[in-house]
């Protein structure tokens, strides 16, 4: 028996480096060594917290979504602006999507499963990868090179994934384009408006949360939905929210006008907590509520 275990250990030990290399290779093979007049000048490779060495505290954004590692490279070409590619491999497609929702403020679908581009950058997500491509200088050639390498990487990622179910549950009517955030770290609870300076609704890596903007700027309200692992956890969070925002209200869906004249409501849907903040009228929260409860998700 002991020999068997020794054999298993030796086999695992011998093959582990190969397995690790294979994992790295999977991401690196998304990056061509050459394209057009560009060639890789140096590679980037960071795992977990080693990403601090590359982007300091900015790495926490990715770590809060479950980062496996970042692989990338810098491309140089004669007389051409340098192009940098960073491919963030996340623990799940949902997390790659979540990081994407942090960056984009409008919806574009030219690359991957959602993208955003500017004069010197392009980012997109696809499957469990979040890709950022940037150029050293804003030149006409920069945009062309960025789009070219984005297209190559997009094609090299074979799979597409579904977006998290909780995002499907967002009513589309009056939803601000690109105006929602998927997350599971409480830091992002205040992304669109101040809700609390602490983890009021127990958001964690075991919860799925989405915060969305509805209506135009003058008629804006915000919908928070959080899915918990079980009903007990959801009820606990809902009670905390209700105690803080509507301590005297009764019923399963208290609606009340707050001190600034805006309307608030919160309710439960199975393991899901829902809340609407900053609504400008009682009709606004009722309309949004009706859309949610009649949703198939």
């Amino acid at each position: 028996m002991c020999r068997v275990w020794i054999y298993v250990f030796v086999v695992c030990y011998l093959y582990m480096p190969t397995w690790v290399c294979a994992q790295k290779f999977d991401v690196m093979k998304l990056l061509p060594e050459k394209f057009d007049n560009y060639q890789v000048s140096n590679w980037l490779d960071y795992e977990g917290e080693a990403l601090f060495d590359y982007i300091n505290g900015g790495a926490e954004l990715y770590l809060s979504y479950g980062l496996v590692g970042m692989t990338g490279c810098k491309y140089n070409g004669d007389g051409l602006p340098q192009v940098t590619v960073e491919i963030y491999e996340m623990t799940s497609p949902a997390n790659a999507f979540g990081v994407y929702t942090q960056s984009r403020d409008k919806e574009e679908y030219e690359y991957g499963q959602g993208s955003l581009s500017g004069s010197d950058f392009l980012l997109f997500w696809k499957d469990k990868y979040y890709v950022i491509i940037t150029a050293g200088k804003v030149l006409p050639e920069s945009g062309k090179a960025i789009r070219r390498i984005a297209s190559l990487i997009d094609k090299a990622i074979p799979e597409k994934s579904r977006i998290p179910a909780i995002v499907d549950a967002l009513p589309k009517e009056n939803l601000v384009p690109g105006g929602y955030l998927y997350f599971h770290h409480y830091i992002w609870l205040n992304a669109y408006l101040f809700i609390a300076n602490y983890n009021l609704v127990n958001i964690s890596d075991k919860t799925d949360a989405v915060l969305a903007k509805y209506g135009d700027a003058d008629n804006r309200c915000y919908l928070l939905m959080v899915d918990y692992t079980d009903t007990t956890a959801a009820i606990t969070a809902w009670k905390q929210l209700k105690k803080e925002f509507a301590p005297d209200a009764t019923g399963e869906r208290p609606k009340l006008r707050l001190e600034d004249g805006t309307w608030f409501t919160t309710w439960m849907l199975g393991k899901r907590l829902c809340a609407i903040f900053d609504a400008k009228s009682i009709n606004q929260i009722d309309n949004l509520y009706n859309l949610i409860i009649t949703s198939k998700y």
Partner: peptide, 18 residues
């Protein structure tokens, strides 16, 4: 720990600019 509601109450007490 401060929530939006708590802040609104305090701001209301301070009157303008909520």
């Amino acid at each position: 720990n401060i929530s939006r509601r708590e802040l609104l109450k305090r701001t209301a007490m301070m009157a303008a600019g909520g």
